[in-house]
Nucleic acid binder design. Structure first.
Lengths: 339, 339
DNA sequence: CTGTTAGCGCATTCAG
DNA sequence: CTGAATGCGCTAACAG
């Protein structure tokens, strides 16, 4: 491995000069810079990151923590997309990205500890948010730079996070259904433990109330994320004497399952039941019918969180921030006007 | 930041002893080990990775390179799943995983260079395989440990890779259709540039030939991966005077699109047309109908590639290997017997 | 069984 | 504008 000394020797300068050339230090003559760079190229020199990290006390690397992958949630196209967003800014800032590999909560926690204590990364992005999460608490206690994608469960005002206004989105998309004449509207969401779900549901409830519509608990369904494609949810729904005419579903992937189950039961979407959902992943365009869904700009969610995290790592006393990514509703074919 | 010296001082031994305790060197008394460990805990000591990497000349990190994400291919649930597989073994080997962040081919290439030259990682996993790929050539030229998931386009016998027997799988799944009485079977695949596609297609062709069925070019369709959910593919198919009664589709996600377009056209699956596909991602279970598909064991593909790569990094002259992950066909509801 | 010494490759004082 | 010296935190060779 060719090192800084070799380059120094080859170009007839000292190692420190070479170091300065690497950093493009303005106090070095263009002439010597050229000379040195030529030598670097000839020898095929590339600075060693570990050595550099050691002295710089920074790795220019960001850790990205995925939720524990015990469940199938990870197959949600949401994740590749958010990784793309994160990757984009990380790349352009010349950082690198270290992805969590643990499957259980326990594994993930020990991994984060390694990342933090071992100075693997300068900051961490949490792709989930759980009540009383060990990782979050740990990061806070150690005053380590991190951001959460989504809404933190505790200490919301003390944790930098990037999120959508899920309440408003839930309200608006429900409102859309109401505008189309629907009155019996049910909500199907994932785990109650997720803030996204609850916020969207709260928006749904508010829209109903504001329209003077009845809000009944029978219409609020929570299905284990993705579980058997929402079969029970649909069965339950169909068993109701007052069948809803429209559904607000909190995730496109769940919608896909619902769609299948509905069709199985011979119920047409949007003919018999209208459906709206959230996220606007690629899927929602190719399902039949194509979904009317709120585009939460997943890519942007990732990009912004990376951006703000990097700022934080570079300036420890950046204020706590809360970034709200705007959403917009994509109208497609899963809603029908009720006359 | 508390370092090895502090621990040494606090426990009344030398730094090297502490170092040995960390490595659990058997030549150290249990007694002193205890003493030192206690001090480590008290001080909250954790070894600094960069320093260790510097002397060890190894980072215990693996780079994972995704295909350029200009297209939507990345939204394929295939990727999160293979990352899980890779992550699993990486985690248990106490390695870490660095994910590529570039979007274009160019960006990715420069990133790989950084990884390799900067000693960011000990080895690289390529999640794609392209003809005359710069990254592959670069890695080969520099004799840097890497493995390809899928079949290398060039120098197949010189590149360690892990793959399925896509030819055989293609043949077998087509055979299944034939056994069910189908004779007019079309193939819908992604880009011709991908070996997976071509191998599966070759298997399809062979099955047809072996059964004495006619192989006609009109039945071989290649659609830009995912493009508008395979709309043209379906339109084209329906325009044929000899409409196929069954479809072999090279990817579950494409199948989803096809399913939608077919239904749009009022064609029932499997009633009017049967369909089989590949990968067995979560989707294929919740579509309607659920897909008969070949499970290529994505997770295993990832896990094995990580395993063999780590072996390679630890022993530079591991022989070139080729690992074939067995597939198995999952029979669901998208095929109907033709009488 | 443990301590001393040296050095990994680089960036950064401090001199000049 | 450039060089010499020092240290980042750790491991390994060599003594003892």
């Amino acid at each position: 491995m060719v090192n800084i000394k070799d380059v120094a020797k080859a170009s007839g300068v000292s190692p420190s000069t070479v170091s300065r050339v690497i950093a493009d230090n303005p106090r070095i003559t263009e002439e010597t810079k050229k000379k040195v760079r030529k030598a670097m190229k000839q020898l095929g020199y590339h600075p060693n990151i570990s050595a550099r990290n050691l002295v710089a006390k920074s790795t220019k690397a960001i850790g990205v923590i995925m939720p524990s992958s015990a469940n199938t949630a990870l197959q949600n196209p949401f994740f590749p997309e958010i990784l793309r967003g994160i990757g984009s800014v990380i790349h352009h800032m010349q950082y690198s990205m270290s992805l969590s590999t643990g499957e259980t909560e326990e594994e993930i926690f020990s991994e984060v500890k390694r990342m933090v204590f071992g100075s693997y990364v300068d900051g961490v992005i949490l792709l989930y948010s759980r009540i009383n999460d060990r990782v979050t608490n740990f990061l806070r206690k150690n005053d380590f730079p991190f951001v959460i994608v989504g809404k933190p469960h505790d200490h919301e005002t003390e944790i930098t996070h990037v999120d959508n206004d899920n309440f408003k989105a839930g309200k608006e998309i429900t409102r859309h259904l109401i505008d189309k004449g629907h009155e019996k509207i049910a909500f199907i969401g994932g785990s109650r433990e997720l803030f996204v779900t609850m916020d969207r549901e709260a928006g749904y409830v508010t829209a109903l109330e504001e329209a003077g519509l009845e809000v009944c608990d029978e219409y609020k369904i929570h299905t284990e994320f993705l579980k058997s494609g929402g079969r029970e949810a649909v069965e339950y729904l169909l068993s109701l004497e007052m069948r809803p005419t429209a559904l607000v579903v909190s995730d496109d992937l769940i919608s896909l399952g619902i769609l299948g189950r509905l069709e199985e039961a011979g119920i047409k979407v949007p003919g018999d039941i209208s459906l709206v959902s959230f996220n606007n992943v690629y899927l929602s365009e190719i399902t039949r019918p194509a979904l009317t869904t709120v585009d939460v700009q997943i890519y942007e969610l990732g990009a912004q969180s990376a951006k703000i995290l990097i700022e934080k790592t570079q300036n420890k006393d950046e204020p706590v921030k809360r970034i709200i990514i705007p959403y917009n509703i994509v109208y497609r074919d899963s809603v029908m006007e009720l006359k």
